[in-house]
Write a protein that binds this DNA or RNA. Structure first.
Lengths: 212, 212
DNA sequence: GCATGTGAATAGATTCACAGCG
DNA sequence: CGCTGTGAATCTATTCACATGC
């Protein structure tokens, strides 16, 4: 459901609002902050239940809790990062997502010169330790930050070890069983999309110019 | 158009195929590699023109060129990275996207201890130099890797300097004029989405168990 | 005969518009 | 009176199914 992709955005807007000591919010205001239509906010929120008050809007704090609950942020979500190169290090050090629910609990690599290093307050372990770490740490989410050619192998291992959510940064399409949640973050795809729209805009301008 | 988001994936599959010396490919095979339906591949490609041969499939090399052209990868795409923290450094060093079209041409920050540093073969310049660099380097794409509270300000500056494509990594919704292409990559949103599906699966299992 | 290209059918997401409640 | 919640309408995307052409 497309709603799920917007709930985190609402969540952040609501967190900002509590920070700003605003106790109530209208769908219009939330929409503004989330960059979407007000009707969409209402429809999205109505999927969670009827938490608004007609004439007044939504209670910020209550709604924050409800959205957090819907996203499962009440439970601890230990993350393992596989592939401790530039990206893996950046992710390990990225404090931003320590905030809510998820926290980095393990770092894995297989290069001897990397295993044993201290990164972001954790010692890098060998990929072979994955199974054991899933058991002891209860790892829930696997982030793949390896080169493209290793990504599928790593995904298979993660799934084999019992990890059911995977966030892949490697530029390949991964195959995972249907019970595994998979998201891709692909820099080159994003750049290519931007390139497309840039070219489109350039063409439009060209046509404009040629019509004079 | 949703097609645009898939063209880069086809592009990569086609690049792999040329690498593997395969000269022709069916929509079925491409679909397999791209993780989508075969009919979708055909419809997507038909938007570019009728480049297939009935009964035989598509010519890999020719199609690769056409998709690349559609994505505007024939033209040089200098990228500027603003915010040289952990993420900015990782992006600057990430060789992966130097491959096609886009290359990192400038790094900017405003912290005195960062400006002047050497990162990924480039000297970090001060944010104030943005306007000059856009002129001299022809910067086309701006990547925002700053903290959330600085991102809108940076976006405004980029747009003001004439950059018309923005890739934002900061966890905020940005406002840019409609002529500017904007993409967001938001780690915490992705994690929250995974968290949602994880919770969903857990609930489903719970119901399953309770029905015995 | 085999695989493309595409109209028609379906599914899904977004917006509109307004009834209904506080 | 203002703002939510939602059915209906619209728009977009995907899949199906087959005529078409090599």
């Amino acid at each position: 459901m497309a709603t799920v992709g917007r709930l985190p955005v609402y969540l952040r807007a609501l967190a900002d609002l509590t920070h700003a000591r605003q106790s109530t919010v209208s769908s219009e205001q939330l929409a503004e902050r989330a960059g979407v239509n007000a009707a969409m906010v209402r429809k999205d929120l109505s999927h969670l239940g009827s938490y608004g008050t007609r004439g007044a809007g939504y209670d910020v704090e209550f709604l924050l809790d409800q959205v957090g609950l819907a996203l499962g942020l009440d439970q601890d979500c230990p993350v393992v990062i596989v592939g401790i190169g530039n990206l893996g290090r950046a992710l390990a050090n990225y404090a931003g997502f320590a905030s809510r629910g998820s926290r980095v609990a393990a770092l894995l690599d297989l290069r001897p010169e990397v295993v044993g290093q201290m990164v972001g307050g954790l010692v890098v372990r060998h990929l072979e330790d994955l199974d054991a770490l899933v058991k002891t740490e209860g790892l829930a989410i696997g982030m793949i930050a390896t080169p493209a050619n290793a990504a599928q192998e790593v995904a298979d291992r993660l799934v084999g070890a019992g990890v059911t959510s995977v966030l892949n940064f490697a530029p390949v399409v991964l195959n995972v069983p249907s019970h595994v949640g998979l998201r891709q973050i692909d820099l080159s795809v994003e750049l290519h999309i931007l390139s497309f729209y840039r070219r489109l805009a350039a063409d439009a301008e060209g046509h404009l110019a040629s019509s004079h």
